[in-house]
Design a protein around this nucleic acid. Structure first.
Length: 679
RNA sequence: GGCGGGAUAGCUCAGAUGGUUAGAGCGUCGGAUUCAUAACCCGGAGGUCACGAGUUCAACUCUCGUUCCCGCUACCA
């Protein structure tokens, strides 16, 4: 077992083309933050690095769409993202960005070093080029007709209609997704990192030396290694990014995947210009990458290969990747606005950062994709944070104020039951530690919560409010111990719920604490004056949750409307065909629901000659049919009569079907004679 | 299509190397209690462990097949 003296913790760099949401928090930043806070509390040397990933094609596309520069886009989102992390107490030592000068310099240096060592191969190939916007097109930005299923909107890498993987050259009638113009083939040269040459040591390093990695991480790496590694491009033709720092590379930038992870290092360097190297090059430094499952191969294979090729860096000791968090049963999606955005959450739930941190940890996607629901959020707040933790603290403080004027009472003789309780909560410390050391944050938090359960049980069993009538000394001991448990809770929850721990610390008038004190009963001294008791957590009412659920339902509706596309036009018909249809205007004389039929309305229509009855299946959209009386509608007059629900319908009333399936009557703009023909 | 991960109580999830009655929290039902944000505390009910075969004295656990969800598939980032 290797000996480590310090730990470098990185968390995946969020891509700066949108704000961050609960999925980011649950998968990466909360677990990383818990771990880092835990190490800090233990007094270990630790550095927590984050930053925004600001290069790459999607940002340039977004900028073009909005008519601003890529720098404008990343400035906007970097600011929002950074603030969200600060607000949620994600305790980065540094949060910088890949557009920083330090990063540009370091990324260039690393590229150059590998280049000079002959660590890249150069290769030319033909690629699609958009002459209108003068840039090469990534596969994703070429669309055309799928050769397999005929879908007109297949992407250059895959047809989403039939699922087939494609090459851009497979597409029939390719078009640039950026400008819509027809792309041409053009030769271009790129640098590749020959991963195949790194395969042997990667295989040993991962498959033999790191069997302790999580199954999802280990499994995916094994899968890649078994398939055989291929050279991977590290440059691309683009004007947004870090220029490839060698001759003959005009117009080429580092591929964003190459540049982004170096951001971990350059952000460290920006913070510690003189001492950054020990965090990245010293053998006694333990490097950990917190990421989501979509990043596994990159952090376990590609980035290590880059670092090895450079030659002077250490490799990650573990990569605790999480699965994904879903929202109310659906995949979280930035583009579909299916997310709970952190900055919006704080507007709706000011001061409730810890509640979200708690819920996301309690239901963290550690072994498989999990689901976030608002109902669960409410339940965890009300029946765990409020009822178990908050309630215990409140009981302990209120009782102390009631019986001892808010001063820590003296500890008397311990009963066997007292000792038994103390023993239980000493266990909590070792259990939480063991779980945190293994990145099992969900269970660790549950174990911390057990401390509050122990406290509640202790009060219920010792019943100080009863004993107070006969034996105040005994009450003093009970409250003394209860307050010590409360102080322990502040420590145990600090990594998970930093804001609440701080609040509790103030209520208890504790100066400071560290992890070593956990499990001890001398955190508070007899006679210490406690602060004013406040509620640690508040109940969340049904109405609050309903508002959030409604917000999501609205989003869903808006998405459906946005996704709606008009049906393609039917084959042409002749004028003679059209003439066969006799469409007329008539006035509604009477209109009512057909009994025992959900959808049908029965119309009595004046058609200019006589009256006729027509049935129409629009009842759901006209809940008050009598309001239609007097209105003019269009109908097909020569439709074969048809019996519906025992009634003859003599024609068909015309409606337009909206995106959501809603039917809307077609009516003339101004009143016309009954029987007027529609031509 | 190929590969990887997953499918376990009403809900959200745990279940090293196969071994007697499969666990937790919430919810639910019953009891006790009143210091506390109608909260806490005690107890009960609830599962052919996705489906179908196979290996084994023994399978939630191993093998094969099927279905569904998620991810990766090397120029989406």
């Amino acid at each position: 077992m290797k000996e480590f003296n310090r730990t470098t913790v990185t968390s995946a760099l969020p891509y700066a083309n949108g704000p961050v949401h609960i999925g980011h928090l649950a998968g990466v930043y909360v677990p990383a933050d818990i771990y880092v806070r835990y190490l800090r509390l233990k007094g270990e040397e630790v550095l927590f690095v984050g930053g925004s990933d600001e290069h790459g094609v999607p940002i340039t596309i977004k900028a073009k769409k909005e008519g601003v520069t890529p720098q404008d886009i990343v400035n906007r989102y970097h600011t929002i993202i950074k603030k969200s992390f600060e607000d949620f107490g994600i305790s980065f030592d540094v949060y910088s960005r890949t557009t920083s000068p330090t990063h540009k310099e370091l990324a260039s240096d690393i590229f150059k070093t590998i280049y000079e060592k002959g660590g890249f191969i150069e290769q030319s190939s033909e690629q699609y080029y958009d002459e209108k916007v003068q840039q090469f097109l990534a596969d994703r930005y070429i669309t055309g007709k799928c050769p397999h299923c005929g879908n007109e909107n297949a992407y250059g890498d895959q047809c989403e209609s039939c699922g087939t993987s494609l090459n851009p050259t497979d597409l029939i009638n390719p078009k640039s997704a950026i400008s819509g113009s027809v792309p041409v083939m053009r030769e271009t040269k790129h640098w590749y990192l020959p991963l195949d040459q790194h395969e042997a040591w990667l295989r040993k390093w991962i498959l033999e030396d790191h069997k302790e990695w999580k199954p999802n991480v280990y499994g995916q790496c094994k899968s890649w290694l078994d398939m055989g590694l291929q050279p991977r491009a590290v440059s691309r033709d683009l004007d947004w990014g870090i220029p490839v720092p060698v001759e003959g590379a005009e117009g080429k930038v580092l591929y964003v995947w190459f540049d982004a992870p170096i951001g971990y290092i350059s952000n460290t360097k920006e913070l510690l210009p003189d001492s950054w190297e020990k965090w990245w090059k010293a053998e006694d430094t333990r490097l950990l990458h917190f990421i989501g499952k979509d990043n596994i191969v990159f952090h376990c294979i590609v980035f290590p290969a880059m670092l090895k090729a450079e030659g002077s860096y250490i490799l990650p000791e573990n990569v605790p990747a999480n699965e994904f968090l879903n929202l109310e049963g659906d995949k979280i999606s930035t583009s579909r606005n299916w997310a709970v955005w952190l900055h919006e959450y704080l507007e709706d739930f000011p001061g409730k950062q810890d509640v979200l941190r708690y819920v996301l940890t309690a239901n963290a996607p550690e072994t498989k994709d999990n689901d976030f629901t608002w109902k669960d959020f409410q339940a965890r707040n009300n029946s765990e944070l409020v009822a178990i933790y908050g309630n215990f603290i409140n009981r302990a403080l209120v009782l102390t104020h009631k019986f001892f004027d808010g001063k820590v009472p003296a500890l008397g003789e311990l009963t066997d039951y007292d000792k038994q309780t103390l023993e239980e909560f000493v266990h909590v410390k070792t259990d939480v530690e063991k779980l945190l050391d293994n990145f099992r944050f969900r269970d660790a938090q549950k174990e911390a919560m057990n401390l509050a359960r122990i406290g509640n049980k202790y009060l219920a069993d010792t019943e100080p409010w009863k004993v107070a009538k006969t034996d105040m000394e005994r009450v003093a001991t009970i409250m003394h111990l209860s307050l010590q448990i409360a102080a322990n809770l502040a420590i145990a929850f600090e990594p998970f719920l930093p804001f609440s721990s701080e609040k509790l610390r103030c209520m208890l008038n504790l100066n400071s604490f560290d992890w070593k004190q956990l499990g001890h009963t001398n955190l508070l001294k007899t006679g210490d004056q406690l602060g004013t008791p406040e509620l640690l957590f508040e109940k969340i009412e049904d109405i609050t949750i309903e508002v959030q659920v409604q917000k999501l339902l609205d989003t869903k509706k808006a998405n459906e409307a946005a996704a709606w596309k008009a049906n393609s036009v039917k084959p042409n018909i002749s004028f003679e065909d059209f003439q066969k249809i006799d469409i007329r205007v008539g006035t509604v004389l009477d209109c009512q629901k057909v009994p025992k039929a959900d959808k049908l309305l029965q119309f009595r229509i004046a058609d200019g000659i006589e009256e006729r009855t027509i049935l129409s299946g629009i009842a759901a959209y006209y809940p008050n049919p009598e309001e239609l009386i007097g209105a003019q509608v269009c109908f097909i007059a020569n439709f074969e009569p048809r019996k519906l629900r025992g009634i003859f319908s003599e024609g068909m009333i015309l409606s337009a079907e909206d995106a959501d399936g809603k039917l809307v009557l077609i009516q003339p703009k101004s009143t016309v004679s009954n029987g007027a023909e529609v031509k």
